[in-house]
């Protein structure tokens, strides 16, 4: 007694099984990419890396600061995605659909993340707590429903040229530099000031890149951004100028002995990369990817610093 098998069919079934597995893996990959990009979760990692850069530059001991900043970033950015999902439906329908689909999960997740960030920040003392409460303070100030005049005043800040991006850059630089300092209970040194200036200007540049994509919508809504006021070409020139100012400032800090060689080289490599990205402004319409590439610069900086440190530079 024997059982016969149809070999060609088996082979076909095997091939089909491999294809279906690959297709499933591809679908998971796409879903993971969507989750990272649409929810801005990749920024969480980059935010942690930025704090790590500060800690390396200032020789600070290990602390929960990177984790706190990562949690705050998740809470703020994903919280904004949830709040803006309706408005995003016109400009970024796929992202809006993704956020709407997982709205409840994101809502609970961001609330939990912010609660955990606040709790952990208490370990860094009152200053760290105050920094962790900055996003919450902005939520309250921007909420025009219960303090209408104050809410409208702060909401108008979003519409003023330079001020809108500067507020974001300032809040970000304060968090990234001052939080690890608060955990370490260290003073604000000249090196900290240089790193603060670097993150402030760099964040300003990275805030204006997405504005290139949103320039039509911003113009319609009366929001003044560099691309709206100066146009794409001049915006590119402004970004060049800001990056070059940073290059000069970092070089001066190095010659003044405020910044060590490894950190100086790391940041300068990052700025060279940023100048390359600025070249694409006006030469591509994929500003979403350009913005992600701009954020990813911090990975390059910390990688260069770590490698140089490892080789004893």
């Amino acid at each position: 007694m024997s059982s016969q098998t149809d070999s060609p069919s088996l082979a076909w079934d095997g091939t089909r099984s491999v294809y279906s597995t690959l297709a499933a893996l591809f679908a998971y990959g796409v879903r993971a990419k969507n989750a990272l990009v649409y929810s801005s979760a990749y920024l969480v990692f980059i935010a942690g890396v930025e704090v790590a850069t500060t800690m390396i530059a200032l020789s600070l001991p290990l602390s929960p600061a990177p984790l706190v900043i990562a949690l705050l970033t998740f809470a703020v950015y994903v919280g904004d995605r949830i709040a803006d999902a309706e408005a995003d439906a016109a400009t970024s329908p796929e992202r809006a659909a993704f956020v709407t689909r997982y709205r409840r999960l994101f809502s609970i997740g961001t609330a939990a993340a912010y609660g955990l960030a606040v709790a952990l920040s208490i370990l860094g003392g009152p200053t760290a707590l105050a920094i962790a409460l900055i996003p919450g303070a902005f939520w309250i100030l921007y909420a025009s429903d219960w303090l209408p005049s104050l809410g409208r005043y702060f909401s108008r800040l979003k519409e003023i040229l330079v001020v809108n991006s500067a507020v974001v850059a300032l809040a970000w630089a304060v968090c990234v530099v001052c939080l690890p300092l608060a955990y370490a209970d260290r003073a604000f040194t000249p090196t900290a000031a240089v790193i603060f200036g670097y993150f402030f200007l760099d964040t300003f540049v990275n805030t204006e890149i997405p504005n290139l994509r949103d320039r039509e919508g911003d113009a319609a809504n009366g929001v003044s951004t560099l691309p709206v006021v100066f146009g794409v070409r001049r915006t590119r020139h402004v970004l060049y100028a800001l990056d070059l100012c940073l290059v000069a400032g970092i070089a001066l800090a190095f010659y003044a002995g405020v910044l060590d060689a490894a950190m100086t080289v790391g940041i300068l490599v990052g700025l060279a990369y940023a100048l390359c990205l600025a070249w694409f402004v006006g030469r591509t319409e994929r500003y979403g990817r350009l913005a992600i590439a701009g954020e990813a610069k911090h990975l390059l900086v910390v990688a260069v610093v770590v490698v140089l440190g490892a080789v004893g530079f």
Binding site: A75, I108, A111, G115, A119, A143, D145, W146
Partner: peptide, 25 residues
């Protein structure tokens, strides 16, 4: 206490997002 702060803050944010429903503030 930190657990209590984390849970309380998280719940406060969820309640904040429910404005202006009665009881939220």
């Amino acid at each position: 206490l930190l657990v209590s702060i984390a849970v309380g803050t998280g719940a406060a944010i969820l309640a904040w997002r429910e404005r202006p429903k009665p009881g939220a503030l």
